[in-house]
Amino acid sequence: MIRVLLVDDQPMVRAGLGLVLRSQADIQVVGERDNGDDIVAAATEAAPDVVCMDVRMPGTDGVTATRQLHAAAGPPVCMLTTFGDEDVLWSAVDAGAAGFELKSATAENLIEAVRTVAAGGTWIDGTLLGPILRSYRQLARPVPRPDLPTTLTERETDVLRLMARGASNREIADHLSLAETTVKTHVGTLFTKLGARDRAAAIVFAYDSGLVRPRT
């Protein structure tokens, strides 16, 4: 059972997130907060496996609360945000957030994000990755652009391109007229061929290789 603590200042948003997560047999919402105040104590009390945290809140904001949890070796944080504020996204990366999902994402993407982060992985919504990478490259030294493996099939390349745009497995299946189980097989094969630990690493590879370019 994955235990989730929801932190968002908007009651309607928390209710919607809770409804989506509680629909899954393996996810339990163990607490809700309307700001990041005393977040370490709240996490200690609720003992969540992952914290879903809004970025902008009155009192202690999501970035500060994430930094406090990270410093206290608390549970991993999946940030919930809206598109467009690159400085906030980079601040959240620097604070130690393990996941980034849009509030406008599909229910399926939110569930995948929670499961991935709770399992120790990294999740980045494909729409947010472009701004995060842009901010990172302004601070980091240039690195050689990796080439896509020549062993990738045309179908695997299509799957990777859609994945990098933030599509879930179900959305990829619908777009390519495939069974969702077939898409999952392609995704697993992509991880192996790219040497990627998880979905986020595969998405980064897609951007760094030039297969996908950040949207402006």
Rank of each mutant, 00 (worst) to 15 (best):
I2E: 04
R3E: 03
D9P: 05
V13C: 02
A15Y: 05
G16P: 03
L21K: 04
A25P: 11
A25S: 12
Q28T: 10
Q28N: 08
Q28Y: 06
V29A: 03
V29C: 05
V30S: 01
G31W: 08
E32M: 08
E32A: 06
R33P: 02
R33T: 04
D34V: 13
D34T: 14
D34P: 00
D34H: 10
D37P: 03
D38H: 11
I39M: 03
E45D: 12
A46E: 07
D49H: 15
V50M: 01
V50Y: 02
V51M: 04
C52Y: 01
C52E: 01
C52K: 01
V55S: 04
R56P: 00
G59W: 06
D61M: 06
G62N: 00
G62S: 00
G62L: 01
T64I: 11
A65T: 01
R67V: 05
Q68Y: 02
L69R: 03
H70D: 11
H70C: 13
A71M: 13
A71V: 09
A72M: 04
A73Y: 10
P75I: 10
P76A: 03
P76V: 03
P76L: 04
V77R: 01
T81I: 08
T81R: 05
T82Q: 13
T82S: 14
G84L: 03
E86R: 12
E86F: 02
D87I: 15
V88G: 01
W90G: 00
V93G: 02
A95Q: 02
A97L: 10
G99P: 04
E101D: 13
L102Y: 05
K103G: 15
S104T: 15
A107V: 09
A107N: 12
L110K: 06
I111S: 05
A113I: 06
R115W: 09
R115M: 06
T116V: 13
V117A: 06
I124H: 05
G126D: 07
G126T: 10
T127K: 15
L128Q: 00
G130H: 00
I132M: 15
S135P: 07
S135T: 12
Y136W: 14
Y136D: 10
L139N: 11
L139T: 13
V143K: 14
P144L: 12
P146I: 03
P146W: 02
D147A: 15
L148I: 07
P149S: 09
L152D: 02
E154R: 15
R155F: 10
E156V: 09
E156N: 07
T157M: 11
L162V: 11
M163S: 14
R165I: 04
G166H: 05
G166M: 06
G166N: 08
A167L: 15
R170T: 13
I172W: 00
D174V: 15
D174A: 14
H175N: 09
L178S: 01
A179Y: 11
A179F: 11
E180A: 09
E180M: 12
V183K: 07
V183Y: 06
V187C: 13
G188W: 05
G188L: 04
T189H: 13
T189D: 13
K193E: 07
K193D: 10
L194N: 03
R197T: 15
D198E: 09
R199C: 12
A201N: 01
V204P: 02
V204N: 00
S209I: 14
S209V: 14
L211P: 03
V212C: 06
R213A: 14
R215L: 15
R215F: 12
